Amino acid sequence: MSINPIVTPIHAQSLSFNHVDSAEVLVAQYGAPLMVLDCDVVRQQYRALQQALPNVDLHYALKPLPHPAVVSALLAEGAYFDLATNGEVDLVNSVGVPSDRTIQTHPIKRVSDIQYALEYGCCVFVVDNINEIDKFVAFKDDVELLVRVSFPNADVLADLSKKFGCKPEHAVALINHAHNLGIRVKGLSFHVGSQTRSGDKYATAISRCADIIEQVTEAGLPALNTLDIGGGFPVQYTADVLPINIFCAPIRDALAQLPDTVRVIAEPGRFIVAPAVTNIASVMGQAERNGKTWYYLDDGIYGSFSGLMFDEAKYQTTSVKQSDELFPAVLAGPTCDSIDVISENIMLPKLNNGDLIVSTMMGAYCSCTATDFNFFKRAEMVVVNEHAFSESAVSA
C-alpha cells in the first residue's frame, strides 16, 4: 500500500459529479479511467451516522477505502479508527493519527502483528478463542482485549459471524481464561454483517451482550466497560434501504438499556465512504452482438468494478451523453477475459468511442480490490475537497 501519494492541486469549486463538464474536465486533465473521491461526502456521511448514534465513538474501518485523504478528513472530524493489518497501522501512523484513537480488531493475528501494533501504540485488541488469548500472555501488562461474540445473520450481504466470533454462551469462559492468565478483558464486540437490512439485528445482539456483561460481574470477574457494536450500517445502493436515522432507531433504544459505565464504539466503513467515490470510464470500442451494442470501457471487473464479483453492491451507472432515445446495451471491461462484463442489461444513448460512463456509490471495496490484470492500469484516484473550504488534490 502506498502511503505517500503524489499531490497536484486542482480546483474543487468547479466540480460537480452530476454535471457533464465535471467528468469531461477531469478526464481532459488526468485521463481515464478515474476514481473521484469527494472528502465533503466523507464528512457528510460521518456526521449523519454520528447524529444517528449519539454517544457512540465511531472508529472508521479502513478496509473498504484505505486512503490517506479519508483518514485525514475523518481525523479532523474527531473520528477514531479501526485497524486490522500492519499496513493499516502504517497508514494511520503516516497521517498522524494518535495511537490512542485506534483499536486492532482482527480476531486472528500473528504475534508479530501484535508487536507491530504495540510499537505504534495501539493497545486494544479483539479475540474470539483461547488460542488467540494465549498469544497475549507475553504482552499482558500492555494490552486490553475485547472478546468478539458471534451473532449469525442470514439477512445480510456478508455474514461475518460465519468466520469470526465465539458463541454467546462461551464468552464468560473465555473472559475467565484471560483473567487467569493475568490479561485484562475490557469488553465485548460483535459484527452483525455487512450492509445489514435491519437495525433490529444490532438490538438483539446488544441485549445479549448486556446479559453477558451482567454474567461477568456475577462471576466475580472485573466489570466490562466497553461494547463494540461493529459496522455493517447500510448505504442506499437501492431505494429500499432505510435512511440511517430510522435504521438506527432500534439500536439507540437497545443502547439506552446498557449501564452508564459502558462505553459504546462502532466500526463503520462502507457507510462512510461508499457514496464518496465516483468512477469515470471511457468507451474504448464497440460492437453489435445479438441486438445489443457492446461498449468496451477502459475500466472493468478486474479494476474498479471488482466489487461486482464478490460484494453484490449496486452501483448507479449512466452516460455523460444524454438523449431521450435509449437503446439496450452491454458494458464490458477492457481485459481479454469474457467474465469482464459490468452490465448486460442497461439502456443507453448511442455512444461514440471516447464517450464517458459515470458510476456512483463506488467508494467501498472498489479501488482497494482493483488489480492490474492484463496490464490494464487501475483507475487513478482524484481527491477533491480534501481540505474543507480549500483546495482539492489529486493522488495516485
Rank of each mutant, 00 (worst) to 15 (best):
M1R: 08
S22K: 12
C39T: 09
L53T: 09
P54C: 13
V56E: 08
P68Y: 06
V70T: 04
L75Y: 14
A76K: 15
E88R: 11
D90T: 01
V92R: 07
G96Y: 04
T102K: 07
S112C: 07
G121L: 09
G121D: 12
C123R: 15
V126N: 10
N129G: 13
I130L: 14
K135S: 02
N153R: 09
V156K: 11
D159P: 04
K163E: 07
C166Q: 10
R184E: 06
K186M: 12
H191N: 12
T217P: 03
T217G: 14
G230S: 02
G231W: 06
N245Q: 15
Q257L: 12
D260W: 01
V264R: 10
V277H: 10
A281Q: 01
M284Y: 00
A287Q: 06
N290K: 15
E312A: 13
T318F: 02
D337W: 00
S338M: 06
S338L: 04
V341K: 00
L348C: 07
L351Q: 07
N352V: 05
N353I: 13
I357K: 00
T360N: 12
G363R: 02
S367V: 12
T371A: 06
A379W: 10
A379Y: 12
M381C: 09
V382W: 04
V383T: 14
